[in-house]
Design a protein around this nucleic acid. Structure first.
Lengths: 183, 183
DNA sequence: AATTTCGTTAAGAATTTATTTAACGTTTTA
DNA sequence: TAAAACGTTAAATAAATTCTTAACGAAATT
């Protein structure tokens, strides 16, 4: 192949690399492993890929691709695609960032709200016990009450977080913050 | 101290531990180091602490406390407090989760939007070059156009993310999603 | 001025996390 | 029915992160 016809191809690869670098770095920041982050960045510019294509493209082992692709599926950034007449599994990156990143946060926030609220409920019961306990000295009761109130206050945040998740899942948030605001 | 008067104190500590465990686990999930996560969880139930108190309370080294407390300051989950007449620095946990966690996300999202948008702008320029290049074959031009359009589409997301940050910073989001919704 | 206190930095150790190599089970093809 | 293809699991290795010990510098006390 002559040099002049090759150059545009090289330039396309370089351009892709810039975006892929930024995507992978961002995902790293979000706690996604480097292999999974690079994989998603690669798939973002591909229609669909098989495990062997991933391995070749990234120069990594097949098990690494296998576990990475599954992690990406868990956070809904990659979906399995059916390819007629091929034994190999094929996967495609979710290219709509609204869908992929919001799936990520909803999962995270829901988990956080649920986990922390149940810990708070349990702790509050304990604090009530202490307040009702005849053996508690006045200062201990005061302390228990202070902590109880602090936790009660914090519940507002978790309820709000839950509402935020709901408004994202339902799409209602886009009535308030439109996707396509002109600029 | 007699057993009966000690029990309420023990119960208070156990109740705190439940919440502290949940807080630390959540923060771990968010990429905060275990030491910093445990430290914040501890400080959440304290007025203010010195480095030495932290070290004693967590049973860890002082440099570990020093670096942890600084990381927490960076994400605005801990603030330095002035304590008159003490040489030791004192720090207090931000107890309003709306403030602390939202500071965390705004920082993260702003960074993400900025980084990725500038990579996208650069890449798009490259794709335009390829499209204008006389040496580009028709299929290469088509590929460049496809990628250009894909990136153009994705910018919508980053603009939206920026708008989200703005609405959180300004507090406008709470007009849409009130903090104190009754339930 | 010498010594102690306090916080941070730098180097090293320890732990954790990520990835690879090897082996396995299942399905398909020859 | 034997062999090959494919994906996954398990064990081992490699790499990165986190934390500690030791040393330092600045500020304050004696």
């Amino acid at each position: 192949m002559s040099e002049s016809t090759e150059r545009p191809n090289v330039q396309i690869e370089e351009a892709k690399d810039k975006v892929m670098g930024a995507i992978a770095e961002t995902m790293d920041l979000y706690g996604v492993t480097p292999a999974a982050a690079n994989l998603y960045a690669t798939m973002y510019f591909e229609d669909q890929m098989t495990l062997d294509e991933m391995r070749t493209e990234l120069g990594m082992s097949k098990p690494s691709m296998s576990t990475s692709v599954r992690k990406l599926q868990e956070i809904e950034m990659v979906k399995k695609t059916f390819t007629r007449g091929s034994r190999k599994h094929t996967y495609a990156a979710e290219k709509n960032f609204f869908r992929s990143f919001m799936a990520f946060y909803c999962q995270m926030w829901e988990r956080e709200a649920k986990m922390n609220l149940s810990a708070i409920e349990e702790a509050q019961e304990d604090f009530v016990d202490v307040m009702k306990d005849a053996d508690s000295t006045p200062d201990v009761v005061a302390k228990a009450k202070k902590f109880y109130d602090q936790l009660e206050e914090s519940k507002t945040y978790y309820y709000w977080l839950h509402d935020l998740v709901e408004s994202i899942r339902s799409g209602k948030i886009f009535e308030f913050l439109p996707k396509d605001r002109q600029r």
